[in-house]
Amino acid sequence: MNNPVQNVRSLVSEAEWEARVNLAACYRLVAHFGMSDLIYNHITCHVPGAEGEFLINPYGMLYEEITASCLVKINLAGDILLNPNPTYGINQAGYVIHSAIHGARADVDCVIHTHTRAGMAVSALECGLLPIAQTNMRFGKVAYHDYEGVAVDVDERERLVADLGSSDVMILRNHGLLTCGPSVAEAFNTMYWLENACKVQLDALACNAALIVPPQKVIEKTANQFEPHVRRPYGIMEWPAMLRLLDRRDTSYRD
């Protein structure tokens, strides 16, 4: 009987296989930290050395089931280039959102979209994300995109890209959260802390007490201190530790 893992690995470059392992790890980490949504939502990464091609999850699998070999390779036109298990297709909303960003942002390798309870709650607040804690102040450049319904219409891509601009963080109003970055490691780290920032805000608002908001000058200074030109990009140093965490629990994401 053919081994699907060996079959996929023999069909792709070593660079693509490494990207697949990192992306599968990201899916597992999102599940581990409670940010998954059954079989829904999507994380993608660019296929190294292939313009306009990216990897996405097979629609129907839990995040905790994702492996390097099961990821589906598609292009910006939505054509499926490699699907190791044709039983599963791809999520149309995932294609629309992720193809928009991969097609417009050459600096982006990975895009993550979630529907967490905290993320959806903040997305419904008129005030958006508030700079009320150091974690929140990391996100000095948050983009917002108004809700247009389930993102299955291709013509929404233009507005998604326009609203995102050059930011790596976007709150989809009445919907959820989106982060992107020049690597899987950086995009995951951004999402992890964005999720925590949303939780901090909801906890503070639930106290029904006056909030302390630092002066704008301090907020801007703090946001600048988190910028990658000031320090090592967040996510790079942490990624090996994240992989060790997964390896202690289940190494099957590498298959």
Rank of each mutant, 00 (worst) to 15 (best):
K141R: 15
E156R: 07
L194R: 00
E156P: 06
R138T: 05
G128F: 04
R173I: 08
S166V: 15
F188T: 01
Y147K: 08
L125I: 09
R157G: 11
L129G: 00
K199H: 12
A143P: 01
D155S: 14
L130Q: 09
H175F: 05
D203F: 15
L202V: 08
R159Q: 13
S166C: 15
T179A: 10
V142F: 05
V154P: 13
H145T: 03
G149M: 06
C198Q: 01
K199S: 11
L202Q: 06
T135F: 09
V142R: 01
Y147C: 08
L164T: 01
G181F: 00
F139E: 00
W193C: 12
G140Q: 05
Y192M: 14
Y144Q: 06
E186L: 07
Y147D: 07
N174F: 09
V200M: 13
D203G: 15
Y147H: 11
R157Q: 15
V152H: 08
L194V: 09
F188S: 02
K199L: 14
L129K: 00
Y147A: 05
I132H: 03
E186F: 06
V152P: 03
V184E: 02
L160S: 03
Y147W: 13
Y147G: 05
E186S: 12
N189Y: 13
R159F: 12
L130R: 09
L202D: 02
D146Y: 09
V161H: 02
S123Q: 01
A151N: 10
P131W: 01
A133W: 09
L164N: 00
P182E: 08
E158F: 13
G149H: 04
D168F: 06
D163L: 07
L164D: 01
D168K: 04
Y147M: 08
R173A: 04
Y147P: 04
E158I: 10
E195M: 08
Q201T: 04
G181I: 00
L178Y: 04
V200D: 08
I132P: 00
V184K: 03
L164K: 02
S166P: 13
C180L: 09
D153L: 15
S183C: 10
F188N: 02
G165Q: 06
E195T: 03
L172R: 04
A197G: 09
V142Y: 02
G140Y: 01
R138G: 03
D203I: 15
L130S: 03
D146F: 07
Y144G: 05
C127R: 15
Y192V: 11
R173H: 07
V142G: 02
